[in-house]
Each structure stands twice: as structure tokens, then as C-alpha cells.
Nucleic acid binder design. Sequence first.
DNA 1: TGAGCAGTATGATTTGAATCATACTATCTT
DNA 2: AAGATAGTATGATTCAAATCATACTGCTCA
Lengths: 198, 198
Amino acid sequence: MQINIDILLAWGAAYKKVAAGEIIFHEGTESSFYYQLVSGKVRWVNINDQGKEFIQTIIEPEECFGEFPLFDDEPFAASAIADEDSVIIRLHRSSFHQLLRENPELHFEFTRLLTQRLRFKFLILKELANHNPEGSISTLLNYFKQTQKNICTKCNRLKLTRQQIADMTGLRVETVIRTMKFMQSKGDLQITKGKVYC
Amino acid sequence: MQINIDILLAWGAAYKKVAAGEIIFHEGTESSFYYQLVSGKVRWVNINDQGKEFIQTIIEPEECFGEFPLFDDEPFAASAIADEDSVIIRLHRSSFHQLLRENPELHFEFTRLLTQRLRFKFLILKELANHNPEGSISTLLNYFKQTQKNICTKCNRLKLTRQQIADMTGLRVETVIRTMKFMQSKGDLQITKGKVYC
DNA sequence: TGAGCAGTATGATTTGAATCATACTATCTT
DNA sequence: AAGATAGTATGATTCAAATCATACTGCTCA
């Protein structure tokens, strides 16, 4: 879900450029803005004491992120880091709330987005709880296929690294590599020159 | 978050009694209703092929559940099962949508609820991904404390069984029992006659 | 075109949660 | 009050993912 850039600008939003690797906001800090990605790629991520990352969501252009504080007045639940040079746009929360009040259809779209994100978490959690790497990876890839995210719709090539899959499933990269090889041997997916085709 | 019973009734909602163990709705089935628990207890749960349960949320009186289909037109993401004889109330989706349209403040409250639930999933997922039973259990108990759920606010006694904690963290009940004993030995919590005090 | 680096892949070992089995305790029901 | 059952607890074993180490391949950049 995205809010049309022209609408955001009309309500006072401002662009911001971020460099690859730059932290847009930190988990645990307060927020006063609505964030939307214009171009580039951002990962919405938790980092533990050992520096290990858990990627909650990979944000793509036109998608919003870091919206929790706007609705529950709590700090950020995860950090946002740019995977590549990116452009984001942000709107102050008071303007954002007013925008929703004056545009109920937009509010419904937003509610739909939160629901889709919550459903995704239900899906991933039930798989993680099964302690079955193949199930977790399979479920994640199926989700990407259905939502047309992170997979090339023309050639079905997975656009993510094994490490990113590992970071989204709580598994180790070695486990993801071996599990995907196994899935290839079963015919569940194809691997050519290291590239995965679902 | 709850919608006042009188409002629900005024908009055409109807009560329904469910017996302990009764399945209110099944994962994967379609829905046309908004559900709210009036009395009793319900668990919102995924059940895998081996019959193992993953409890996504324990629903308490005045809380709604099964709301995803209302906003994203997809089937139920988990099943709802009554833990004890309960009373629920439900409103047809079209009336529910109209109720929100005519009451923007209610819609905002609902958005806040979804956000809180999403934040809880972010929290549990990042802990599960760390493969650290003590961290997962500790985080869950802290969450219950903060939200005053499942813990007696007068004596701090945990109202859930070890099995329920296991079902909410993806761990085995033996692991939860041993980990809680370990946490007791560290002074992180107290156990008296099998009862846990946080 | 070649060097360097990111990403993929393989092998060996460790380890802790799962698994299986069984006993004990608290609670409920008659 | 006693029997039955749910829940807690303990002990032993298994095993698959984590961990550690190292090699190979594809891609980027000069």
C-alpha cells in the first residue's frame, strides 16, 4: 500500500536521500513521522546482541514502513536500514492523522496493509514454531510468489541471497544453502549457476 | 480493544454460546463476521499436520479476534477454539464496515489494536529467531506483565500452564519446564507448588 | 582481462532442544 | 476422603541445526 506521492507532497511531506548502509531509524527510538520508500531498498530489521539480524520485512518502492508509533505511541519495533542508495519521503504524524481523517478510504487501505503484514507474521511464526527448515523456506518462497515480491515475475528468479533468506527465517546461511540444494534435488525448485528459480 | 456491546447490539450483532473445546472457526475458511469475546476464553491457534498447536494469541473477554478477512478478503489465518464455555458476539461484515465509516474514532482504535498485535509478533519473532528458550520465555512473560494479560495483577501469578507457554513459543513443554526452573534458580521468577510468580 | 570480493558450497564437529520414558504433585470430581 | 486426571518434573538418549573451517564460483571494478 502506498500513498500517492503528490498527495504526500501536498500535505507537506519532504524527501530525504539515504546512502546504502545508512540507518534511517533505530529500534527503540521515538517517531513523529510517516515513512514511505520512493526508490531503492530498505530492510526493517532487528539486530541482537551478537549483531545477528532478523529481517522482519524487506521494503520496496512505494511501501511504507515504521508505522507502529503512529498508531500506538510506542517506539520503533525494529530498525530501518537502506540496502542501497535510496530516497524516502516522510510526513509529520499530525498531518498524517489528519490525512486519514479526511480520507476514510485511505484509512481503510492502511488497515488492509496492517492486516496483510499481520497475516504474514502469523504465517512465518507458525512455520518457525515447527522447527522445519524446508517448511519455513518453502512457505517464505511461496509467499514471495503470491505477493510478487523478491521474485522476478518474468523468469521466476529469486532476487534474494541465501543470507537474506536465513535472516528472514532465523536459520543459518549454511542450513539455507543445504536445504535449498535438497529442495532442488526433489524438483521443488531449480538452481543454475547459484541462482534460484522457483 | 473492544467495541461496546450496546453499540454492537444496536448494529444488529448476535450472541452465540460456545462450549469448551468447540471450534468457532477453522483456519483457511472464509468469514463474513466481526467476532468479539463476551465471556470465557478463546485461543487463536494454528495446528500442524502432527496435531501440534501454535497459539498465536489468547483472547480474553471484550477482545475481538479473527478480523483479518474483514480487511483483506482472505480466509482465516488461524483457528479459534474455546478453552472454556464461552459467549461470543458477532456482527456481519457489511454492518461492521458501515460502523467504522460512521465512527472514525472507532476505526482509529481498531488500527491501534492491529498495530499492537503486529508489534507483539515482531517481538516474538525476533526472539524465536535467536534460538534461545530463556530469551523467548522471558520476553513473553515481560509482555504479559506490561499488558496485564495472563498474570494476576494482585499476586503476579502466571495464569498459564507450561504447555501454553510452550505452544506460544514453539518450544517443547519439557524445555519450558526446565528453562523456568533455571530462571527460578537465577532469581528471575519464583515457583511455589508448581505455580509461577513473575 | 585479471584481481578482489561477495556469495555459494562442502566437510567435520559440537551441542542443546527434541524426543522418549517415567515418576511425582496438585487439582478436580465423586 | 479417595480415586482419577491434568499438570509438573526428572532422567536418558537422539539428532539435526548450529558452529567452525575451508574451498569454489560468480560478479564487480580497475
